[in-house]
Nucleic acid binder design. Structure first.
Lengths: 188, 188
DNA sequence: CGCCGAGTTGAACTGAATCAAGAAACGTGG
DNA sequence: CCACGTTTCTTGATTCAGTTCAACTCGGCG
């Protein structure tokens, strides 16, 4: 839990009182490897903080899934568009490794928004952070070649290349597993 | 101005008092067609609301610019990543048509965040909206063909195709002007 | 009227998709 | 802890969408 508070306090000063209100709503939940955290077609009920684990977002499809996000220890995870809009998600979130989440429900978070000074500030910082992440990704998808995007993963997220099956990485980069295999061959 | 208030009130109830505090900080500013709103390399100083006009975001480059965003009447515009982080933007924002903005400066907005109950809520909604926009775009870039992305513009933003030079649309879609010309030929 | 940038068209080229088959790694039950 | 079956990864051949370079047309504006 201290990990979560530290994470917030990188952005904003948090009084003990505000923290107590917020943390009293957090629920700890474990997801073994390969289990589903949010099912495609359901409304996201939680904003979650990852104590430990890896999480993958993907759009399921008969031919092949489209993986578009990974999240790691120490970050927030949520089907955030669904969480905000209360529209069912068109993607599934699963644990790629054994994962431990601290979660706050939608209703509890709304209460905090309404009741505490700090709630909306936290919500704003979370949204801003997610926006920045997506902005970077947009430019990478428009500007960089597939090979460049793969190399970027090395510098930005080395854990990723160790721990995540190539077929998911390939999808995330925006190419087929075959193409990624050939890029790797070319590089080494 | 009423337009801006209406825009906020689609998201949230706004007391006259809160609105007065907020709107007292807004500055009206005009940008003739083809003028620069935010110059590459500068820190974004404003969050702006577009009363009238069209705005283009692009990364300048010797060979060819990369256009990655358009914004229209009735929406917010800002080099928001730069605005949040206070890091100089690596892109330029320009008026594609004669444009009228209502702007709030960074410092004034921070005061509002600090002083009013409603400030952070507004900031949160703005950030959430921008996040949703970028999320959609990510999936479109990963999932759709160039032709599909062009067709999507018809249904989602028909004004765009009328009013914006094809070379900018091509860049936004992620292809060359030549490729877009051929797609158009194929379709009609 | 002449110029210039935008758009179009053609030809050659390239990165990645697709289809297909074999090799390696993985996990599950005996 | 091994053996088997399944999934993942690799490699090859072919096809395709989009790039690049180049030449030409069109339309608007000085």
């Amino acid at each position: 839990m201290q990990q979560i508070r530290d994470n917030f306090e990188r952005m904003i000063k948090l009084s003990d009182e505000d923290w107590n209100i917020f943390s009293s709503k957090l629920i700890r939940q474990e997801f073994p490897k390969k289990t589903t955290i949010l099912q495609n077609g359901h409304v996201e009920g939680y904003l979650s903080f990852i104590e430990k684990g890896i999480v993958r977002y993907y759009i399921p499809s008969e031919n092949k899934d489209l993986t578009f996000t990974f999240v790691f220890d120490g970050e927030f995870t949520s089907g955030y568009d669904s969480f905000i809009t209360r529209i069912p998600a068109n993607y599934t979130i699963e644990a790629l490794a054994d994962t431990v989440l601290w979660r706050i429900s939608y209703n509890d978070l709304q209460d905090i928004y309404a009741e505490t000074e700090i709630g909306n500030t936290i919500g704003r910082f979370a949204s801003e952070g997610l926006f920045l992440k997506k902005s970077k990704r947009e430019l990478s998808l428009l500007n960089d070649s597939a090979e460049q995007r793969y190399l970027n993963l090395f510098t930005e997220q080395p854990q990723l290349i160790q721990k995540i099956p190539q077929k998911y990485l390939a999808s995330y980069i925006g190419i087929t597993p075959q193409a990624l295999s050939r890029i790797r061959k070319r590089i080494y």
